[in-house]
Design a protein around this nucleic acid. Sequence first.
RNA 1: GGUGAGUUGGCGGAGAGGCUACGCAGCGGACUGCAAAUCCGUGUACACCGGUUCGAAUCCGGUACUCACCUCCA
Length: 464
Amino acid sequence: MNTIKLTNSKTRQKEFFTPINSCNVRMYVCGPTVYDRAHIGNARPVVVFDVLYRLLRYVYGSRHVSYVRNITDIDDKIIDRAVQAGIEIDELTSKTLNWFHEDMAALGVDYRNDPQFFEPRATEYISEMLAMIEELIKRRHAYVAKQHVLFSVESFQDYGSLSGRSTEDMIAGARVEVAPFKQNSMDFVLWKPSNNDQPGWESPWGRGRPGWHIECSAMSHALLGETFDIHGGGSDLIFPHHENEIAQSRCFCPKGDFARYWLHNEMLQVDGKKMAKSVGNFFTVRDLLNQSVPGEVIRFVLLSTHYRKPMNWTKKKADEAMMTLRKWRNLTSGIKEGRPPENVVNALADDLNTSRAVAELHRLAAVQDGPSLKAGAMLLGLLHDNLGHWYAPKSNDIDEILVERIEFWINQRNLAKIEKNYARADAIRHKLSAVGVAVLDTVDGVKWAINPAHENSGKWELLE
RNA sequence: GGUGAGUUGGCGGAGAGGCUACGCAGCGGACUGCAAAUCCGUGUACACCGGUUCGAAUCCGGUACUCACCUCCA
């Protein structure tokens, strides 16, 4: 069995991973708040932890790994957005969740038929949250103030240990206005009141809704128990979200360890800057797909940098990824995958070193080892059939008249070649390539292909 | 102000005290009417200043710069 090493944010060290129970390895990752299309940065943890899930399944067996990724479907951002759009919250969240599933499936993350994957929605776990909050109050880790229930950070000694902050530092640096009813300015909300226009549930403290952090504590506890193996998410969640989760869960189950290994992926930047709508470098996964950047290419780019390093999204990386994938698909087309090669498995087992795994795949490609290349790539979620539509576009996607027109020029060029009129032959090739039609002379005759991402693709009138 | 991450060849990006990373681009060559694809060969590197060591890109100290988090955020 392969030994997996993971960098644990809790200890800031790379550690050997030993599951509590190797027949039931349990992982929890913070999922999306469903109010809008997933942007490219949202996709990074989804893909990174998908690779970890694949690795764990490979090492421990697919029936021995459970993966929970929650859906936050009650949140002030959702409420605001629904009001803006003039629709019901359910309509917004279910529409957004469908988008999320579609977009992530395009990146090769699709758990629809996976009995080991769980996707709890916060609104389905309100009673568990209420029970947890009541228990925290009973144990004096939480208190009621003005219809709010607040967690008392002073009641938990280890508060701040994950993010390495002392409570004093946090208070000094806090830029938030502190609600006057808080006993300590760092105390955070477990439950807050809802007015009549806001969604709410009856509770001992009046009609209200849960705070964000309690969701993950309640859902991970309900589905994975009081101690589980891995908790993942983006590094921006370390504080306050994960810190608060730890406080809630550890105080609720003082005997449990909550999560034993904390994994955090670094942030994604675009053209060297944090993605922001104001900077104009903000785009969603769907935007890229619509620009004919295949999901497999997006996935490759996301895995080409180690997950613990900030990564920069650029068009150039996507272009290079596409070239590599085309090469690998040429090499493996019609070939059945073999066993995942040791070098690739070892690279992944070493703290999910995806970029080293990619380097190993390049080596396998260089020695033309198709079966190993394919198996290794598949462990990364690449070269699967369902991601290959871009590589072999179906001819029936193309207008028949257009095909006739292209083939007319191909024939003209063939005639020119027979007459050794190479100037004319080249001129025709240029004409076709100007609209994104590549012409290749191969041993099997002349072939052509349309590149839908070409800047003039679709401007077929240029062909006249 | 506090916390953390980082600075590797033209670009991207691993590694980690002595051994070619790898990819793209470049250059030379094979193949080709020319291209494309493919194949073969090839150069360039570890921010700066000190220290430890037989030996440092890798360890230690300092400096500079970059980024993120401390507020909803993946």
